[in-house]
């Protein structure tokens, strides 16, 4: 296990001009092989037009315990949503 083939995270951009999206992971010796493997593992049904691969250990993630401090502050800022404002129907589409 000392020389295990490293793990990569795979991101695919679909047909419709959206962002690359995380689809899973795979093992590959280098980036080139990771892209070829990702083609075989994650795009067998024409799911993508572009592939990114990133070594899994290069990703920094927020800790689950930080969920509160990170995300709760936005809960009480409902005025950021357009539906917060009552605009009379007479104004028309806005």
């Amino acid at each position: 296990m000392k020389n295990e083939i490293p793990l990569w995270e795979v991101f695919i951009r679909g047909q419709h001009g959206l962002n690359h999206r995380h689809v899973g992971s795979l093992h590959a010796a280098d980036a080139q092989q990771a892209i070829l493997n990702a083609r075989d593992v994650y795009t067998r049904r024409n799911e993508g037009v572009s592939i990114w691969v990133v070594p899994s250990n290069a990703i920094s993630a927020s800790a689950p315990s930080d969920k509160g401090p990170l995300f709760e502050p936005s809960n009480d800022k409902i005025y950021r949503h357009p539906t917060f404002y009552d605009i009379p129907d007479d104004v028309g589409t806005m």
Partner: peptide, 19 residues
């Protein structure tokens, strides 16, 4: 492919592919 998706899911629990 199905095997590979599942191995990846198992690996997120802290076991390695080779194990």
């Amino acid at each position: 492919g199905h095997g590979l998706y599942l191995y990846c899911a198992a690996e997120t629990l802290g076991v390695s592919r080779d194990e």
